[in-house]
Simulated assay, not measured.
Amino acid sequence: MSQIEKAQAEYEKFPEQFASIVISTVSKEGIPNASYAPFVMDELKNIYIYVSGLSTHTKNIYDHPQLSVLFIEDETKTNQIFARRRLSFDCTATLITRKTEQWEQIVQQFQDKFGEIIEVLKPLNDFRIFKLTPKEGRFVIGFGAAYHINGNQLNQLTQITG
C-alpha cells in the first residue's frame, strides 16, 4: 500500500473516533471565537451540530455562516505534541428547520450516538441544528505528511509539499 493510500484509509476512519469537534466562528465585529460541539456526520461528510441559540458560536454562525471545524488527536495519545494528527474543514452552515423530516432524522442520529440527553434537548426551542457543508480541508498525520482535501464528496487527498 502506498503512502497516499495509507493516508486515504486513515482519513476515512479518522472522524469516527470523535464525539465532538472544535468549531471556529467569527462575530459580526470580526472577533474570533473557538468552541466545540457534539456532532454527527453523513456519508457525504456533511457535519451536523446541535447547539444552543444562546451560545456565542451560534450567534456568530447566524452572522457569518462560514466557519472552520477541527478534529484533533488527544494529547495523551500523540507520539509528538508538535505533530498531532488533525483534520480541518472550511464549512458553510445552513440551519435545519425544526420539526421537519430532515430535522427528525438528524435528531434520531444524535439520539443514537449520545443517548438520553437528546430527549432533554429536543423540546428546548433555543436548540438549533446546523448542517456544516465542507468545501475543502486539510489532513495532517505527521511531519511532512499533510494533505489537502478536495474533489467530489471531499474524498481526494493531495499531498502538500515544500
Rank of each mutant, 00 (worst) to 15 (best):
W103P: 00
Q111L: 00
I61G: 01
S52R: 05
F130L: 06
E136R: 15
F130T: 05
T94R: 10
D63F: 08
V69P: 02
C91R: 03
T25V: 06
S20Y: 12
D112N: 14
P123C: 13
E75C: 06
Y48N: 03
A83C: 06
I117R: 05
I129G: 01
L132T: 02
P38N: 13
T25F: 01
K77T: 14
Y50S: 07
V120L: 15
I23M: 02
P32M: 09
F71W: 12
Q111R: 11
E101T: 11
F39L: 07
R85I: 12
S27C: 06
L70E: 07
C91H: 04
K135G: 14
L95K: 10
D90H: 11
G142S: 11
T97H: 10
Q66N: 15
P15R: 10
T58K: 03
G137T: 12
F39M: 10
L95V: 12
F139S: 11
Q108P: 00
Q102W: 00
E119I: 01
I21H: 01
K77E: 14
A9P: 08
D126S: 12
G144D: 13
F71D: 05
F14E: 09
G53A: 08
V69M: 05
I72P: 09
A19D: 14
T94M: 04
A19N: 15
S35L: 02
D126P: 00
I49V: 15
F143H: 11
I81S: 09
T97V: 12
I118S: 06
K99I: 00
K131L: 09
F139G: 12
F82W: 09
S88A: 12
K28I: 03
L44I: 07
P134N: 08
R86I: 08
F114M: 03
S68Q: 14
K6D: 15
A19R: 11
F130M: 06
P123W: 11
P65D: 10
P38H: 07
V51R: 00
I117W: 00
I49H: 00
N60R: 03
Y50P: 01
Q8D: 15
L44N: 14
L87W: 06
V120F: 14
V120D: 11
I31T: 14
S35K: 04
F39W: 05
Y48W: 07
F14M: 12
Q108F: 02
F14I: 13
S35R: 02
I61N: 01
I31F: 09
G142F: 10
C91S: 09
L124P: 01
E10Y: 11
G142N: 10
F110Y: 06
Q80W: 04
T100D: 07
Q111D: 04
G137F: 12
S24I: 05
Q80G: 01
V40Y: 01
L67S: 14
I23L: 09
L87S: 08
T133K: 15
S24V: 11
E116A: 14
V120P: 01
T78N: 04
F89M: 09
N125Q: 14
F71N: 05
N60L: 03
D74W: 12
L121G: 08
D42R: 07
T100E: 05
D126G: 00
E16S: 15
Q108M: 07
V22M: 14
I141F: 02
S52G: 06
I47P: 02
F114L: 08
E10S: 15
G115K: 02
N46F: 05
E116P: 06
D126F: 04
P65F: 00
T25C: 03
E10P: 01
F18W: 05
T25E: 02
D126Q: 14
